[in-house]
């Protein structure tokens, strides 16, 4: 009996000490971690827009973030968008609810600061407070609309779809006509040397310049990449020459990776699907915003 008590006491003590050490470490590192994630995201965004390394984006460039939610309440499901409102330096947010046919249900002011809106916890709380009890919120995704002097120059869309092993998560930069401007693979766990090659320039740069019409029916071919196209994709050529060759292959199907046809195909289909859905949703949202004369910064 005494033995058992000693064992219990000692194990509990060890666990408490371990918990204390881990807790202390968490407190010390959590701030740096959040900061890192934020910086990393910003880096991806700006490099997609073409501001790599030390090139600073101009002051006139502005990012507006839309958060999409699925709302379930006793009346059924609806789609909600948290959008910033007003012109210039905005701190006000509105939650626009649309039914599944794309008609406006209601629009509510959400009392949330710009700082809090970035964090999911604070944002969810504020929207919940605005909607009142009974509605259940599910966060879906976010979209960033980039404007320069009030004109839209780009959309940044995140997408997640199954690859060969697990989910592949990407960020796409689209031009206002929904053609692809840039692609970044954020997360993937494909096989190194095979599927993981989707991160390489010679695969992902194939998507750049594909128009919306091409994307809709984009296919994968199992053929070796032509030598000159490969050079252009890996930016080993002069800019003008590379642009010319790329123009030539603009509407061509995606060349699959050797030994990773499934990964290539799922990325291609995933991107095509992401863009199609995004274009559909944005058109509906734009129509509502225009009809209701909501003042938005984008």
């Amino acid at each position: 009996m005494r033995n058992i008590i000693t064992i219990i006491v000692r194990l509990t003590l060890s666990c408490l000490i371990a918990a204390f050490v881990i807790g202390l470490c968490f407190v010390l590192t959590s701030k740096a971690k959040k900061h890192n994630e934020h910086v990393n995201e910003e880096k991806v965004i700006y490099s997609l827009l073409g501001y790599k390394g030390d090139a600073h984006p101009p002051e006139s460039l502005k990012l507006s973030v839309l958060y999409r939610y699925v709302v379930s309440d006793p009346h059924g499901k609806s789609i909600g968008y948290l959008v910033p409102t007003g012109q210039g330096e905005t701190t006000a947010f509105s939650f626009i609810r649309l039914d599944l046919d794309g008609n406006l249900i209601d629009q509510k002011q959400v009392a949330v600061g710009a700082e809090d809106a970035v964090e999911q916890e604070g944002r969810d709380k504020a929207i919940q407070a605005a909607l009142g009890p009974g509605a259940e919120l599910t966060y879906a995704d976010k979209t960033i609309i980039v404007t320069e002097n009030g004109n839209r120059i780009s959309y940044l869309v995140t997408g997640k779809f199954p690859g060969f092993k697990t989910f592949v998560s990407v960020m796409l930069a689209l031009k206002p006509d929904f053609s692809v401007r840039g692609l970044a693979i954020l997360e993937q766990e494909e096989d190194p040397g095979l599927g993981a090659e989707i991160e390489k320039d010679y695969f992902k740069n194939q998507f750049i310049g594909k128009s919306f019409e091409t994307l809709k029916t984009l296919d994968v071919v199992k053929e070796p990449i032509p030598e000159e196209y490969l050079k252009a994709l890996e930016s080993r050529l002069q800019k003008e020459e590379a642009a010319k060759i790329r123009e030539q292959f603009k509407d061509h199907a995606i060349y699959a990776l050797t030994g990773a046809t499934i990964s290539s195909r799922s990325v291609t289909n995933g991107i095509s699907g992401t863009v199609k859905k995004f274009a559909y949703r944005l058109n509906i949202l734009d129509k509502v915003i225009k009809d209701q004369k909501i003042v938005v910064p984008f």
Partner: peptide, 25 residues
């Protein structure tokens, strides 16, 4: 009698610490 759980606990603590430090810095 509880040396193995203690080892595992020690290892787990250090692994968690490294995991957090790496993620942060």
């Amino acid at each position: 009698r509880i040396r193995i759980p203690t080892y595992t606990l020690t290892i787990a603590t250090w692994v968690t610490v490294i995991d957090m430090v790496l993620a942060a810095y």
